[in-house]
Design a binder for these strands. Structure first.
Lengths: 346, 346
DNA sequence: CAATCGACGCAGCAATCGACGCAACCTCAG
DNA sequence: CTGAGGTTGCGTCGATTGCTGCGTCGATTG
């Protein structure tokens, strides 16, 4: 497997970016094949690929591209390479420089120097948490001001990098807890992609994959010991497809030691009633993201159940005022929901 | 026909390529007779011919020649391969033709096809046949003869005891591995409940919860380190809702250290194409549990993608004979699927 | 003497090149 | 809240590169 020099297209496909992007990275950040003659086709060696992967990883962590590039550029060169092989003749080998849209200063003697033109000249040291600058356009997800982790998650999602998405989410959960991880990392990206989808009718696959990763991470939150029987039932309304918020709720409760029973999506009224009859929960949370004619009925049937739960809550934006009978709580956000359910769990 | 060493001309005629091409392939890609002294005539053994056939099949499928060659070169010596179905004569069809339309020819009756429908000799272990034996009675799930764990799982499912279900499944995975846990524990109960549902139109909530637990346990199987980029793409056909089998496949592969990219359910054709374009997978598995008119289109679109995967497989019972183009593998059980994908993972 | 061999050349085509532009996103000033 | 300014990923365009299959040629092989 000696010199498997990959073409630009191959690399692009492998990394999940556009070919043009590779070219742009090369001329904007000098992040290209180490040996490349202008006009000739680019041939990426394993090292070059390595650098690009660093670049990807960093940007996926929320680092601003320009900075990530500066970092990637100085990625360790596999031992056996002698002096910076770069004959002085080469006209304009690696055009660094990032500012001026067109300005491209050859910049004499630019071998190993390169300090990012960004804020700090170059603080060497792996400091993986630099501030984030403006985020890229193009195929990006509108996020607004969010934490870096969310930005990274969005990038990883667009690249369909499930492993990285899981890592980011899991890290967020561990560091900040389920609630914050949900509110500040997962949710912004989820809604961002949702908007993206509404606007372009594309990126369904991104949405799917992200949902799946969120589900996996949430379900990995350790559950309370099986000794305690769940007294809280979480279910989606009939015809309701998404239950990610319920999963977040379940995970958040689990984090506090409160077990729940989470039925899946699209729970028909009959099934819900059966479940209530058979498990006699103290609280029932019904989730609905979009209004549906059957929602009111669903709620009413639970409310008039022979053994109604102590607490019945209608969660999500899918409920409309007239749907909600007396004594049914309304939930629209994670934290209030937690507060409410906590009282019932005692 | 043991050691029938074919000459270059004979092989060329048999494969339908020019003699010069064989020579070119030899010197350019090292794809020639394994034992050959320069200057001497080439003598192709059955193996060598095999390799060439792989080369042909891949290229006629749209794979870039250089890549196809690399692939063919490392083709293991398949012990039992069906004899090359092709009458020895074939005088005319050889498209010797001068220049004119060269390059790629659609080639309807692509002779040397071999494998393509690789999963031929499968039918091994799987046979999920839950059968239906003495029914348990009461609120039970018809299972037939199964391992105790499955019986326990069914009971836990009927009681909506998610924690217990997870425990049972997790234990099965740890003790017997993903494949056996799926085939002998999860699958029987899943199909059992499915039948139950078909018959009574009830227990949807049980089905949901069980699915969810299976998903959770499968997704908890440790994934290979993120360093290795997945080269296998798993996706559900358009309109397809369930992907549990794909999740099992992903988990089983993960268990062997093979990473995958699992898109969610209901992947629209456009999204699938986008994903393929952006990640350039080596293999694509399309799952469909029930026949759907758009299935054929979906498959065809992938097959005619500018960068088709080396291996394209139609998995699940939702595929019908006419849907499946040339060179697309058919998968109906977990073990054969594993065997096939393992070869591509190298 | 027919079939092959290695070397060379050629034409078609897909991939890629550089340049340019666009749209979206973010920041910051007003 | 609005608008200007900077960043960034990527689509598009005409030109170039280089891969690929195969014909041709003089020399060998069987």
């Amino acid at each position: 497997m000696a010199d498997e020099a990959l073409s630009a297209g191959a690399v692009a496909r492998r990394l999940g970016v556009a070919v043009t992007t590779l070219r742009t990275w090369h001329q904007r950040y000098g992040l290209g094949p180490s040996r490349h003659v202008p006009g000739q086709h680019r041939r990426y060696t394993a090292q070059d690929l390595n650098r690009l992967e660093v670049m990807l990883r960093l940007t996926s962590q929320g680092v601003a591209p320009a900075e990530a590039a500066a970092w990637a550029r100085r990625t360790p060169v596999p031992a056996v390479v002698s002096a910076p092989v770069l004959p002085p003749d080469v006209p304009s080998p690696t055009p660094i420089l990032g500012s001026g849209a067109s300005g491209r200063a050859p910049m004499p003697g630019d071998g190993p120097d390169i300090s990012s033109r960004a804020p700090g000249p170059d603080f060497s040291g792996p400091a993986p948490v630099p501030g984030h600058g403006p985020d890229g356009g193009g195929l990006a997800i509108p996020l607004g001001p969010v934490v870096p982790a969310a930005r990274g998650l969005a990038r990883a999602a667009m690249r369909l990098d499930a492993a990285l998405m899981r890592d980011i989410l899991a890290a967020a959960v561990v560091e900040t807890g389920v609630v914050t991880a949900w509110n500040e990392v997962a949710l912004p990206v989820l809604t961002g992609i949702g908007e993206r989808y509404e606007a372009t009718r594309r990126f369904v696959e991104v949405e799917h994959l992200l949902s799946r990763c969120v589900t996996e991470v949430l379900s990995a939150v350790p559950r309370p010991p099986t000794a305690t029987t769940p007294r809280i039932l979480l279910a989606a309304a009939d015809e309701e497809q998404h239950i990610l918020p319920l999963e977040a709720l379940a995970a958040a409760l689990a984090e506090e030691g409160i077990p729940t029973r989470l039925l899946g999506a699209r729970v028909p009224p009959q099934a819900l009633e059966d479940a209530i009859s058979r498990t006699g929960p103290t609280a029932v949370v019904l989730w609905s993201s979009i209004p549906h004619p059957s929602n009111a009925t669903q709620l009413a049937r639970v409310a008039t159940h022979p053994h109604p739960p102590l607490l019945l809550a209608a969660a999500g934006p899918g409920w409309q005022q007239p749907d909600i009978p007396e004594g049914v709580a309304r939930l629209t956000a994670l934290i209030p929901a937690l507060n409410l359910l906590r009282t019932v769990a005692a």
